[in-house]
């Protein structure tokens, strides 16, 4: 009974705050609405017994949303929401697509004859997850690792303002670096 009440409270909170993300007047508020939506989903993940993953998601999302708020201050208009904000395009088409997607998904969810619950959960879920990631799912874990490393390289390359190819030419053979302001000791 308690879990049913918790489920509905958290599910409604997740969806309502998810919707508010695109309704509020400030991007800072939108970020924190998204954070609340995430935390509600974390609550649901905890509700089904995945304690470790729930905590991991919660920690990650809090940090992620704070980083997002920093970027918002860097790039975005109206971060404080002091005036009404409307930044939509193609609202009607998008609403049709999103509504259609929900209708199709809901029809599938309600019409499919889902199988019965098979088996019982492992006594220590975190241990089982660790064993899977370091055993049967090792390939998944290695792929994730390589992908994360590629992401680090790609993001550094993208975020670099002027790299060595800008300064020393495509073959890195310029005799002097092409810098906007000279520096050093006059060589």
């Amino acid at each position: 009974m308690l879990s049913a009440i918790l489920f509905w409270v958290l599910a409604v909170a997740a969806v309502v705050f998810g919707g508010l993300v695109f309704r509020v007047d400030s991007m800072a508020r939108a970020t924190f609405c998204l954070l609340i939506s995430f935390l509600a989903v974390v609550g649901l993940v905890l509700l089904v017994g995945l304690g470790y993953l729930g905590v991991v998601i919660a920690l990650m999302m809090v940090i992620e949303m704070v980083i997002m708020a920093v970027f918002m201050v860097m790039f975005m208009m109206n971060p404080a929401g002091l005036m009404p904000m409307s930044m939509f395009h193609n609202t009607r088409g998008s609403a049709v697509i999103a509504g259609g997607t929900f209708a199709v998904l809901a029809a599938g969810i309600l019409l499919v004859d889902w199988p019965a619950r098979g088996g019982a959960a492992a006594p220590d879920l975190t241990f089982a997850l660790g064993e899977a990631l370091m055993g049967g799912q090792m390939l998944t874990m290695m792929t994730l690792g390589i992908t994360l490393f590629a992401t680090i390289v790609a993001t550094v390359v993208l975020a670099t303002d002027r790299g060595r190819y800008d300064r020393l030419g495509d073959d890195l053979d310029a005799s002097t670096a092409d810098d906007p302001a000279g520096g050093g000791v006059g060589r």
């Binding site: 599910a11 997740a14 969806v15 998810g18 919707g19 993300v21 695109f22 991007m27 939108a30 939506s37 989903v41 649901l44 997002m68 970027f71 918002m72 790039f75 975005m76 208009m77 930044m87 939509f88 395009h89 193609n90 609202t91 088409g93 998008s94 609403a95 697509i97 999103a98 509504g99 997607t101 929900f102 998904l105 809901a106 969810i109």
Partner: peptide
């Protein structure tokens, strides 16, 4: 609930002009 979240996110991704949003 998951489908609702997914659809709302899809709506936002399609409508928002700001890249962060």
């Amino acid at each position: 609930a998951a489908a609702a979240l997914f659809s709302i996110g899809l709506f936002g991704a399609l409508t928002q002009q700001s890249i962060v949003m």
